[in-house]
Design a protein around this nucleic acid. Sequence first.
DNA 1: GAGTTTGAAACT
DNA 2: CAGTTTCAAACTC
Length: 794
Amino acid sequence: MDTPERNQIATPISKFEDSPVFNYINSLSPIKPVKSIRITQAFSSLTFASLPSIFTSPHVSSFHKESRFLRSHQDSDPSNTGTSCKDENKTPTAERDVSDAAQVAEIESEVQENFDILVPIGESSGEPLNEHQEFAIELPQSLKYDCGSPNCNPTPCGIAAACTVSKSDAPIVEKDFQIDLPDGKSHHERISQQKNDTGCGWESLASESTDLLIFSSPNDAAAFRGLMQRSPDVEVGCFASMVSNFPQNEVNDELKKQLLYQLTFDEQHEAEEPSCQPVDSSEQKDTNSLQNGLAISTLGDHTGTYSSVNMDNEVGALIPFANKPISDLPRGMRRRCLDFEMVGTHQKSLDGGSGGNSSSLLKSDENNIPKNKQLVVVKRGGDSTRCIVPGIGLHLNALTSSTKDSRIVKHESLLSDVQALNVHMSTTSLQSPLTSQELLHKSLTLSNAEDMDCDDNGLQVTEEASQAPADLIYEEHGQTSPRKKRRRMENGGESETCKRCNCKKSKCLKLYCECFAAGVYCIEPCACQGCFNKPIHEDTVLATRKQIESRNPLAFAPKVIRSSESASEFGDESSKTPASARHKRGCNCKKSSCLKKYCECYQGGVGCSINCRCEGCKNAFGTKEGSALRGPDCEEEEETEKCERNKAEKIPWKMENKNSDELNLASALPSTPSRFRRPLVQLAFPSKLKQPRSSFVTIGSSYTLPSSQKMGKPDLLLPPPPKFEKLPPTITEDEIPEILCSSSTPMASIKSASPNSKRVSPPHSDLGTSPNLRSGRRLILQSIPSFPSLTPQH
DNA sequence: GAGTTTGAAACT
DNA sequence: CAGTTTCAAACTC
């Protein structure tokens, strides 16, 4: 789609330049390096991205596609994998190549280390070729990123592409790529590709995942050009990918070195056109298809790589990202979430054998990697563990409210956050590799650190909000029963994250299923039986969804809406009581008096309204009678008072949370990643907002939990808060129509929303230090389709 | 952890 | 649209 890629990560280029590797390369190359300028770019690209549906499905389901890709790729190109290496070793020339490759590999690894890029080194510490192969997968992504980012200097990418294509003997498919030359000029380059092997790569990329080629069209690129600044990270990634490829490609050392050098600086606008030439000369035969094929699958992983760069080198690097408009980030991440979640989940299982599995894109070998560089092992396993996090916002928010208490986060929440991010990414072409990566990387890094805490579940989540919003460590060690997790979440207060259903008969294809209702795939932790709500059954899920929507278009729409103005401003909101939000359809409680979570209103943290048909309503957030008697205006006030009274007795936590949350949001969001996360949450919010259950939380909902809750110690005085102690996911009424009406395409939705400029933050706008949470959130709501669109996004 | 309660979702 | 059934979460013990 149109998603521009951004690299928000401020790459430590300077560091790179200072590194021995750099010097070495520099010495080899006639080109004189210019001191790189560190660019912090605000990520606005996301804003443009279309809102992806939670279900990555039709369009997205990058995961599936990726998987397919990998499979096909492998099948078609067996030589690319380990076999190729063996063959090379057998031949004399191969030896030389191998040695060269090894040398290059060394360099590469060093370079990468310098960049703190996560690399799949693990298995192949002794096998340069393998390592390279693994690296090779990055190339496609690099291309993607470069191409994707408007400002990004595509040269490297262009080169890479050219290389890939140049040697193909097979029939080729021509594609137009816009390449920005170092001199700043852009022109179209016709790149031919192999149709057979490569075809799967580029073509697939183009056709199947429009995401990958974000700016395949010049127009798009131009459109976004102003918005985004190319980030060094991207370049780095490209660079790394390129380098990795060389050995495989049997590129001669000189060329390799030169290329590396050029690539490195290309981004800095110092690259020279000649850089492409080496590529031409280089021989890329086998790797083309592989690289291309992997490209899609690796996206998620890549993200991680980039993030890692930021994370390791600079905590502050994340900031730029954080500053980006909320709407932007989440989206981008969504798509990737799927991949990432896998990463996080599988980390532990790396040893197990990701091995030949195409799924294992990134592997890190601790031995090979410097301490501070945590290897992220990404194992792309089957569909099993994908957790789409419904409530990223919550988690993130919770995380952001850094405190020791917050530190221990249920990894579930973290996962969910990450996943949610991934989901966004996956659904939208826009990806902010950093976000997902950051999370993962951070989590990984932290996991090593002493800070980690282990959950009952075995998931390890560590959060350091104080340091960086993105500092989240999550690791899944084991699984626990859904109930346990749920409990945890409740206790911890971050529980909204991942939904874990326990469906036995519905196959998770009905609204009974919380996961399905939330628009997320079931994940490993779910205890569901005969679950079809998995990426592998994407078609089924989508079809079912459509069917349900056909019956009830609002089936997946948020159930709780916030009264129009309330949300506009933090201050306002903080003063408002839950009553300002209402359950759209109302509840039908008869025995629970709307005082238990059986009641959707209560669960959602909102008062009952005239729409409710409840009997004996005693909703602590506002009774039906109360709302009926008073007008909306009075209602709020009265309810507020009422609520306060009630809360004091029954559910103080709610008010407290809300107020504090919002306040915190106002104060804390700016600095924390949560800002953008919130939007994500909403975006991610599936049509159905079961707040308590889903992790999706409306902005302000869960910013700060009482420390006790965070710690997992609910206030004793209070009744068990609804799952979302935070605010229930709510959306303003005026927003709802937009959301519902909003087309699946983000751009369109944005456009429609943007007229209400107050709410929408310009994509390019730099939130900077003072992000406007509201705007971000609003933007999300408006732009995001209530439910993941069933129709593929183009 | 098993069983019960509850109300939404689904079905008729 | 109303009544009934099914379902899974919420709750209780």
